[in-house]
Amino acid sequence: METIKALRIPIGDWVEAIVDFILINFQPLLDAIAAAIGFVSESFENTLLWIHPLILTALLVLLSLWRVGWRFAIFAAVSLFVIMGMNLWQETVSTMALVVAASFVALILGFPVGIAMAKSDTVEAVVRPILDFMQTMPPFVYLIPAAMFFGLGKVPGTIATVIFAMPPSVRLTNLGIRQVSHENVEAGLAFGCTDRQLLMKVQLPLALPSIMAGVNQTIMLALSMVVIASMIGAGGLGNTVLTGIQRLNIGLGFEGGLGVVIVAIMLDRITQSFGHIGQGESLFRRLMRTLRGHPAAGEEKGEEHARTT
């Protein structure tokens, strides 16, 4: 036992040393990152808060109506009024803005990595364990270096969220592209696609359902992380929950939790609706057809029928 104790490998010390090293030598880089991330998350939040609550509610209800359906639109309207009734509007919008900003950054970083993974087995072999690491590390752990590098507040909260939420979009982009039918890829090549054309015209469009599933998961993970990130001052609904815990105030904690649930359901259903492709005539298709000036297939047939009879 003594010898084993004497054998202690100081991984923790090493990590600390690395963090110190980065802090001392890369301060300008850290500042630049902080400024960029801060700009993105603050502009999202300011824009959303700038819109009058009722107008934003109306916009969200309309979006739900367009993408999901009238039942979900009613649900959205009722839930958003409940949030306003709980006096949690500002926190909810703040949380949404943080989720959207963090997901935005995560996707911007995640797509190229996912594409690179799909194109090269070597890249996949290197990135896969890193993704595993990112996903299995308890999310609280990210808060420590984030806070050390960027202090307290929204910026470290967003960064910790980006790291935690990125893996699904990388994975599912990779998977989606790899799962594109072999013959479709061959068709692209046989008709003379360059590598770039193959990606843009064949692989990405056909991988879209999978990629959108990744976007959806990234947004969901971002939401869960944003709540945790309130511990380093990211604010929003997480803060309400945290206060509820600290004061053992069940009511406040429940209200905050309910707000998170509502945001989660809305983000989930709306982002999921963008991943549904190839299930008959979607609204998107109808819209595209109308824009091109062609009536929908059904209508056309109907007209012909009317003419012949």
């Binding site: 039918s181 013959e183 068709a187 046989a190 008709f191 003379g192 492709i277 190839g278």
Partner: peptide, 21 residues
């Protein structure tokens, strides 16, 4: 090769390989 594929040859596949989108 890309020019050849664009100008001279075309291919038809067993599973059609159309672009669903």
């Amino acid at each position: 090769l890309i020019q050849l594929r664009r100008r001279e040859m075309a291919m038809v596949f067993q599973s059609f390989a159309l672009m669903p989108h």
